[in-house]
């Protein structure tokens, strides 16, 4: 199987979808001539030309809103936010227009837009550039939210996102862009709402997604070697829709749940999952549900301290040890 980086896998999905569907257009700041600030769209301008790979001015509200409008007429724009952190400039367009237009029109209008870009901390770019917004996005019915953890998923989920008829918010990670993984060739898609068992186990369930899957896998390996723990790790892949069944099945097996997320704890994805699990599987739980997340403050710049603010392997291990 070919080995691609996460970045190349997304680029492959974008390229294949552009070739498949003439309505797919890629837009964003610096995506064309500059090859994308994170190089995701590198080479695509040369290959597909300026009609399909379009550089925009720094006008997030304008170009994201424009993409939403164009999608109502059947264009399938894939809009890059250089950082998801800049979504706030376009927030009205996303939560009022993209999320609501189908509902407010009584189902008459579809909005098949994809908005993509990195949303993560850990690169010392400070409070304005390190927002992790999956919870805020998922809070809005009408939006779908995808956070892939590896190259194969990134490619397959991106293809699904572009073909989806609803607005899909696709959250990548600058630290994962260079991570390599096997990516099956061909036109492979993944349905939204189907979590992956990243590691099977019986002692404790970790529900996680995105880069935290890597931390969780490393922590589980460490504790298997040192303590013989057998930990199950569920990679959600998509936040909305959410694969509740897989979570509940795993909790019914392990009876202990740790949620690991690069999120501030207040109203996080983890709070939502904890609420559902105690509602639907209260009797299965042998311990309180715990979360490992971002320390509850804006993102600190200081490089060594930021490493401590967001989840890391040591903090995941500490979380597991509180439950086992």
């Amino acid at each position: 199987m070919p080995v691609l980086t996460y970045r190349e896998a997304i680029r492959a999905a974008l390229s294949e979808e552009i070739e498949r569907d003439p309505n797919v257009v890629i837009m964003g700041e610096e995506v064309a001539q500059f090859s994308g600030a994170s190089q995701v769209t590198a080479g695509m301008l040369d290959k597909y030309g300026p009609k399909l790979i379009v550089d925009t001015p720094i006008s997030e509200a304008g170009f994201i809103g424009m993409g939403i409008g164009a999608s109502m007429l059947g264009i399938r724009p894939v809009m890059e936010l250089m950082f998801w952190s800049f979504y706030s400039v376009a927030f009205d367009q996303i939560v009022n227009n993209a999320a609501n237009v189908r509902y407010m029109s009584g189902g008459q209008i579809a909005c098949p837009i994809v908005i993509r870009g990195p949303a993560n901390g850990g690169t010392n770019v400070g409070a304005t550039h390190s927002h992790t917004v999956e919870n805020i996005l998922a809070h809005h019915p009408g939006l779908k939210v995808v956070v892939p953890s590896n190259a194969a998923d990134a490619k397959a989920l991106m293809k699904t996102a572009i073909r989806d008829n609803d607005p899909v918010m696709f959250l990548e990670n600058t630290i994962l862009y260079g991570e390599k993984g096997e990516v099956p060739e061909g036109d492979i898609t993944l349905p939204f709402g189907r979590a992956a068992i990243a590691r099977a186990g019986k002692d404790l369930t970790i529900v996680t997604y995105g880069r935290c899957v890597l931390h969780s896998l490393a922590a589980a390996e460490t504790l298997r070697a040192s303590k013989g723990f057998d930990i199950e790790i569920i990679d959600l892949r998509t936040i909305r829709p959410l694969d509740v069944d897989t979570i509940l099945r795993s909790v019914a097996k392990t009876h202990r749940l740790l949620i690991v997320e690069e999120q501030r704890p207040y109203c996080s994805i983890g709070s939502h999952i904890a609420a559902i699990v105690q509602e639907e599987a209260f009797d299965e739980l042998d311990a309180p549900i715990l979360r490992v997340g971002t320390i509850d403050a804006p993102s600190i710049y200081s490089p060594p301290v930021e490493k401590q603010q967001i989840p890391n392997v040591d903090r995941v291990i500490a979380g597991i040890l509180r439950l086992l």
């Binding site: 770019v125 400070g126 409070a127 304005t128």
Partner: peptide
């Protein structure tokens, strides 16, 4: 800024300098 802001977020209100802002136009 006590190491909290970084290069993009310098401030000195005592000198009437209000930053240092990372979001273009903000």
């Amino acid at each position: 800024s006590k190491g909290k802001g970084g290069s993009m977020h310098y401030f000195a209100p005592d000198l009437n300098y209000w930053g240092g802002h990372g979001i273009v136009g903000g």
